[in-house]
Nucleic acid binder design. Structure first.
Length: 577
RNA sequence: GCCAGUUUAGCUCAGCUGGUAGAGCAUCUGAUUUGUAAUCAGAGGGUCGUUGGUUCAAGUCCGACAACUGGCACCA
């Protein structure tokens, strides 16, 4: 019979555990779930796993699969389970915390490996495909996901129902490497990093910076239409500001700060919010001013843990398309919905039609501020805004910020990792700390509700995701160099320059490739660097004032009158409304 | 920060069990004046991540540190 892929994956996890037990008898087992594209299992053993072990483990697994071992389920009592797993400290820890709650406790045995497990499993190992899995990697992982606990060794395995599916997947992953933002950054001459001088900080080259600016320009244009006011606040401010905001206590060690000659401590801003609060605090605000939208493209610096840095996706210096929305309690839900729709619309312009939303709810932490009652209300408001508008979302329990719940949206990179981009956060902390108020209809002072929001999130990360999703082939309006003009020989240089000039006159950034090389060579090179349009000009084009066009990814050639082409391009590079 | 791996020319990589470095592409120079994915020839270019150590001798062996890659933790 055939089983669902999750069942196969999870059964294979048991097979791997059995194989590892055979090879390293001292091993202690933690757990091994099925995941997207495969499964993993966490082990604790003196032996340090490395790639060199993979072949042997795989071989052992295949032998076990062939052996027709049965997966046998048994319902046991808690006491019985504790006897069985007496030598397995991780299973024991789990059992000691186990609250039966009316549920049955089941164990599965496969050969001499017994695991606490709800199942389900295949009946016999011969139901498992023996050539549709491959060990991917070994990595550290904390027991129970807590860095205070011991680090275990996690072996990741890619697993599918058939060898073809596995091979397709491996091939896809291999191709994904070509879309890696770091590789595209180099190949397309967009940016680079200087690990010796500024790990995790981007050096934008001309072309990369053009894209970066266009992203900002686009968001700026859109939010100005929507009534946002753009401000700019200082990059370096006294430490006392972040003490006041509460961020110093929680994130102090992740800040860049330093002492001045007169003994003061200044801090490079890790976030723009406190600055925004100070701007709101200027003058007296009326209820008629609300909702008030203060936006800032704020460059922020955070000393992120070295192990967390990753290309454009996770950097230490980045720009947020930040905004703070001040409103009344009654306006809150409407404002949340507006932002949700805004984000959805903006994302669609970049081709992201499916975005995953998560409602991040409170976690118990010493830093959390606000009573349960306030949290109930805040979480309820966000949830209602999502539900009432039919927006699909997941709950991310415990993912809230210390000052309030949030709705985050996530985009995937080329190998399927998800990254938080846009966010809407309800802040129950800052208005209080900065004693913000507005005068209500009743003539009394009231505390405004404050929402943080970022749409792209970080320009850096968003560009990383965008590059990977498009493989570097950006829509014309975002392309840093939409047209390169290639003269067939020296004789047509002047005409090539004229074409460039006419394009630039209408705001199309074009350049001529005047190098002493063959057309073949230039077409190859420009194609490799993902130039969207190559315009070749020679005798024919010069005589009838035309261009021969080659579009990226298409070998077909188009001939257009120069005037027509210029007009078309001027249209094509316009930002979407 | 933690676990594993990696670090050799601008890029991609080779250098076996130690005997002071190679290739292709790129770059530069010359020739060529080119019609849609690499024109030919020549030349230059590396204190082998940094730093200690072992050794007569270290790219190669050992240690520390840093960075990078994949995970974990973190992510205001």
């Amino acid at each position: 019979m055939s089983y669902p892929v999750e069942t196969v994956r999870h059964s294979l996890a048991h097979v791997m555990a059995a194989a590892v037990k055979k090879l390293y008898p001292d091993v202690k087992f933690a757990g091994g779930p099925a995941i997207e594209n495969g499964f993993y299992y966490d082990f604790d053993t003196e032996h340090r796993f490395s790639e060199d072990d993979f072949a042997q483990i795989e071989k052992e697994m295949k032998a076990l699969i062939k052996s027709d071992g049965r997966f046998e389920k048994r319902i046991v009592s808690l006491d019985e389970a504790k006897q069985i797993f007496a030598n397995q400290p991780y299973k024991m820890e789990w059992l000691n915390e186990y609250d039966a709650n009316g549920q049955e406790l089941s164990i599965y045995s496969f050969r001499d490996f017994v695991d606490l497990c709800r199942g389900p499993h295949v009946a016999s190992s011969k139901d498992l495909p023996k050539d549709a899995f491959k060990i991917r990697s070994v990595a550290g992982a904390y027991w129970k996901g807590d860095s205070k606990n011991k680090m275990l060794q996690r072996i990741y395995v890619d697993a599918f129902l058939s060898a073809d599916e596995l091979n397709d997947y491996l091939k896809m992953m291999e191709e994904a490497a070509n879309r890696d933002n770091r590789k595209l950054g180099r190949d397309m001459d967009l940016f680079h990093f200087e690990p010796d001088y500024a790990p995790g900080a981007v050096f934008w080259h001309d072309k990369g910076y053009k894209i970066y600016r266009k992203l900002i320009d686009y968001v700026r244009m859109r939010q100005e239409h929507a009534g946002y006011l753009e401000i700019s606040t200082p990059s370096v401010m006294d430490r006392s500001l972040w003490e006041r905001s509460g961020h110093w206590a929680k994130y102090g060690e992740h800040n860049y700060s330093g002492k001045t000659q007169d003994g003061k401590t200044f801090c490079v801003k890790p976030m723009s919010c406190p600055g925004g609060m100070l701007v709101f605090g200027q003058g007296i605000k009326s209820y008629k001013d609300l909702p008030l939208y203060l936006a800032e493209f704020g460059k922020v610096n955070r000393y992120e843990a070295a192990g967390g840095l990753s290309g454009l996706m996770r950097v230490r210096e980045f720009t947020q398309d930040d905004a703070h929305i001040f409103c009344t309690e009654e306006q809150l839900e409407t404002e949340v919905v507006k932002v949700l729709r805004f984000i959805k619309d903006i994302y669609s312009k970049f081709g992201f039609d499916k975005i995953s939303m998560k409602l991040a709810t409170r976690k118990n932490s010493e830093f959390r501020i606000g009573s349960d009652e306030i949290w109930d209300k805040a979480e309820g408001a966000l949830r209602h805004a999502l539900e009432a508008n039919g927006i699909e979302f997941e709950i991310a329990e415990g993912d809230a910020a210390f000052y309030g719940p949030k709705i985050d949206n996530y985009l995937k990179d080329s190998i399927g990792r998800i990254w938080q981009c846009g966010t809407i956060q309800l802040d129950m902390n800052l208005p209080e700390r900065f004693d913000l108020s507005y005068i209500g209809e009743d003539g009394e002072k009231h505390r405004p509700i404050m929402l943080h929001r970022a749409m792209l999130g970080s320009i850096e990360r968003f560009m990383g995701v965008l590059l990977e999703s498009t493989a570097g082939v950006l829509p014309l309006w975002l392309s840093p160099e939409p047209v390169v003009v290639v003269p067939v020989s020296e004789k047509y240089r002047e005409y090539a320059l004229r074409v460039v000039d006419e394009l630039r006159n209408v705001g199309v950034y074009a350049r001529a490739d005047l190098r002493d090389e063959k057309v073949n060579y230039k077409v190859r090179e420009l194609s490799l660097s993902k130039t969207p349009i190559i315009a070749v000009v020679g005798e024919k084009e010069m005589n009838d004032l035309s261009v021969t066009l080659r579009y990226f990814g298409n070998e077909k050639q188009d001939v257009l009158k120069l005037s027509e082409f210029v007009k078309q391009m001027a249209d094509n590079i316009k930002m979407p409304k």
